[in-house]
Write a protein that binds this DNA or RNA. Structure first.
Lengths: 132, 132
DNA sequence: CAGCATCCGGATGGATACTG
DNA sequence: CAGTATCCATCCGGATGCTG
């Protein structure tokens, strides 16, 4: 096999693509914003700090697993603070860092846009589905 | 089995949750923004209309399947227009509707935030990983 | 060129049980 | 209460081949 197969070229293209993604600055943040739970957790924390169980209740539908996973991730990225109070049942409070509040503002803008245009989208869907 | 099992209750809770999601206005838009390809396609179309193959090249890494799927979805939601020109190889042009441009602006804000804060996030990650 | 159908591997995420 | 570990169903998305 001397020839470079199409598969090889595709593989190479993929690697270049991945490498490009690694380098691309906005890539990691795209990963953040394109995550349902990240958006919801940040929104839930925007008004003020909250405990693990509070969050679980506020964000109805989130599993305990995903909540913890998301909080860890946000903590690592410097958007969320985690404060442990040593008590008999341990108490853990989560809050937003300044950077986190900044991000919450962005998410809030998306949310506001959503609420302002959801009707147009619904109309578009209905007429699209009506036509087939 | 007269008793309502835990599984039943869980199932019911899930349905209520789903119903809640259905009703929630910002829910569908959250689905939109939390989609990588939606964001990228809208961004790619922001400067002006583009053909299918052009998009495929611009958004390096997108598969043909996901590109078509995403375009259909956006068309249905009234963010994208699809204009077919009858030629020998058919020509199809995609563009943003006013609503689509509006959405592109929101995505652009996210993008700008990303570029402005990616360094802070990287720093946070490094110090987090250093500590363990 | 634009698009559809199919197959399939891997990631996502929910359920459950157990620890401190 | 907060968190970890495990199992497992589902779905996303890529690869491929075919149509007009």
């Amino acid at each position: 096999m001397v020839t470079t197969s199409a598969a090889d070229r595709r593989q190479q293209a993929k690697e270049e693509y991945d490498a490009f993604l690694e380098r691309c600055p906005s890539r990691q943040v795209l990963e953040m914003i394109t995550n349902k739970w990240v958006c919801l957790v940040v929104s839930a924390l925007a008004p003020g700090p909250s405990r693990h169980s509070d969050l679980a209740r506020t964000i109805a539908g989130v599993s305990q697993k995903m909540l913890t996973q998301t909080l860890r991730r946000l903590e690592r990225d410097g958007l969320v603070t985690r404060r442990v109070t040593a008590q008999v049942p341990v108490r853990v409070d989560y809050g937003l860092t300044p950077l986190g509040h900044d991000f919450a503002a962005v998410v809030g803008q998306v949310k506001r846009w959503a609420e302002g245009h959801i009707n147009e989208i619904h109309d578009a869907r209905r007429s699209y589905d009506a036509r087939g």
